[in-house]
Write a protein that binds this DNA or RNA. Structure first.
Length: 560
DNA sequence: CTAGGGTTAG
């Protein structure tokens, strides 16, 4: 980037020397501007070129991919085919990367077919893009196939595969590559991918092992890796270790600060998070939009409304960062959770752009918590206008109806879901026992110790009822008898995971359960009682935050 | 004769 002005000077020289129409010079200029995040300049050069070859097209396409204009990149690719210039492996690599960032992978699949026909799919750069694209779309079998057929696997292939498997919660696959890495070695990317994988899964044992490997292989002072370490320790529930890494760092950037702030925010330590934020401002590190998401979510987790307003206003006035959809969603969350539903909807209406599904979904969640069906229906309608096939909305709306006993409406919704062939995102919970990840879904009986787990659940149910636990059947969808509803409740994945942890781990050890969605209200209550009858500390990481549950109390103060 | 690409941290 520091040579960008030099590049522009050279560009002027080129024009004076009448070399601008030269194909090679043109390609180089297009590439230079593309790499300097000035893709519009690339386009201008491209348009003045008399002839185009595969390189000029590829340079421009990759420029658009790098500036996150995927649609434009794909459009150009089509134009290129139209102009009878044949794409090569570099072109496919770029355009496949664009496809990986799109919500729909149809085009990517077609392109995959093309590369097979041209015999390019076994080449490193094409194959690596394919692995990444399939991994992002969650079709792991395809990603694995793309990896396996590679003619020669390089370090990037391994890193991509490691990252893909880790994000798919497949710890064995992902961590095997690390031991395997057949002579290609490991780079800072490898370790960062492994750490982010350990963080996704929440496996602190693996995380610590990787940490040791990092120190041993001399990457201990790498900025990216240290930032990933902070994030890993935070997401595995060990905020002290995260702070240790943070304190030991000689150089910190805005991502370092954002990582540690967001870590404390997720654990519900808003005061500490805000303290760190003020310290960051004091020493002159400029916050960015992600920092503010962490700060606002810290406020939202503990209900600090005035504090949140202060930061929401100052991000624009003091740091000229325009609030994005996520920032608005944080504020809606905060207002909604505090029961200020009307203020929240007023706030949504005052937004400078049209609220998206995320904002309305946040609001719908608040309506659910506060039992406001009327506003909830309004919100659901807004979401379905924007995302007509969103199963989560149907579920939330259906929960809302269920809590009011409107079973006819529940049935109608379920029928409509069936007609649209919508499948809801399945909730699941997992825990790590003896270096092994055990994953459970609702009513799961596939575990070898299922019988013992359900016996434990029955026993727990009896014990906590004696203490005053009353099942909250609002969280059950179906219109069934009360006794049956309770049974459904006791088959929720987070309860199964807790029960398995109780029978398979020794007593003073805290239990760490992870869930892909938000923890259910009844499970939250039940686990608080379970912490009393068993004397165990239970930590639940859900999609949104951490719950440290001990002696019948949760760190979230029942506010999440 | 040059050039174009794929994987990390919030």
């Amino acid at each position: 980037m520091e040579f960008f002005s030099l590049g522009k000077q050279l560009h002027s020289c080129v024009i004076r020397s009448r070399l601008a129409s030269d194909v090679f010079v043109g390609c180089t200029l297009v590439d230079m501007y593309a790499k300097s995040a000035a893709v519009e300049n690339s386009r201008k050069i491209f348009n003045t070129m008399l002839r185009h070859n595969v390189m000029s097209w590829t340079a421009l396409i990759s420029g658009y991919v790098q500036s996150r204009q995927e649609q434009e990149a794909i459009k150009l690719f089509c134009n290129m085919l139209h102009g009878h210039v044949a794409p090569n492996s570099f072109t496919f690599s770029s355009v496949l990367k664009a496809c990986a960032s799109l919500p729909d992978f149809g085009i990517g699949k077609q392109l995959h077919g093309q590369t097979i026909k041209l015999g390019l799919s076994t080449i490193n750069c094409v194959g690596n893009s394919l692995i990444n694209m399939y991994a992002r779309s969650g079709t792991m079998e395809c990603a694995r196939k793309a990896f396996n057929i590679l003619f020669e696997k390089n370090l990037i292939s391994y890193n991509t595969a490691v990252d893909a498997n880790a994000k798919a919660l497949d710890s064995d696959e992902s961590f095997n590559h690390e031991v395997e890495h057949t002579g290609v070695g490991a780079s800072s990317y490898t370790y960062a991918c492994l750490l982010s994988g350990a963080a996704c899964i929440g496996t602190i044992v693996k995380g610590e092992q990787i940490h040791a490997l990092i120190v041993k292989s001399g990457f201990g002072t790498n900025l990216c890796i240290n930032n990933a370490l902070i994030s890993m320790y935070s997401k595995c529930g060990n905020k002290e270790a995260a702070l240790q890494v943070f304190n030991d760092m000689g150089y910190r950037n805005v991502i370092t600060w954002t990582s540690i702030i967001s870590g404390f925010a997720k654990h519900g330590f808003a005061t500490k998070a805000l303290e760190l934020f003020y310290e960051m401002l004091e020493i002159g590190v400029k916050p960015n939009e992600v920092t503010y998401i962490a700060v606002l979510s810290a406020c939202s987790h503990v209900g600090l409304i005035d504090e949140a307003w202060k930061h929401f206003n100052s991000m624009h006035y003091n740091h000229s960062i325009s609030p994005r959809m996520e920032h608005y969603a944080c504020m809606v969350d905060l207002l909604g959770r505090s029961g200020l539903l009307l203020e929240a909807i007023e706030f949504i209406n005052s937004m400078p752009f049209d609220a998206d599904a995320l904002v309305w979904r946040t609001f719908l969640g608040s309506c659910r918590v506060h039992g406001n069906t009327k506003l909830g229906e309004h919100a659901a309608k807004k979401i379905l206008e924007r995302e007509p096939h969103d199963p989560a909305t149907y579920i939330l709306l259906s929960n809302l109806y269920a809590s009011e006993g409107r079973w006819d409406d529940v049935a109608a919704l379920r029928k409509s879901m069936k007609q649209k062939k919508l499948i809801k995102e399945t909730g699941y919970s997992w825990i790590e026992v003896d270096n092994q990840v055990h994953k459970f879904h609702v009513g799961d009986t596939s575990h070898p110790q299922a019988r013992k787990i359900y016996d434990e659940l029955d026993e727990l149910a009896l014990k906590i009822k004696n203490l005053g636990y009353i099942p909250n059947t609002d969280f059950v969808l179906h219109d069934v008898e009360d006794e049956q509803k309770e049974q459904y409740l006791f088959q929720h994945s987070e309860k199964i995971a807790v029960a398995y942890a109780l029978i398979s781990t020794p007593k003073p050890k805290p239990i760490r359960v992870f869930k892909n969605l938000r923890v259910c209200g009844d499970c939250h209550t039940a686990i608080k009682y379970i912490s009393i009858v068993t004397g165990r500390e239970i930590v639940v990481r859900d999609a949104n935050r951490f719950h440290h549950i001990k002696d019948g109390k949760c760190s979230c103060n029942d506010y999440w």
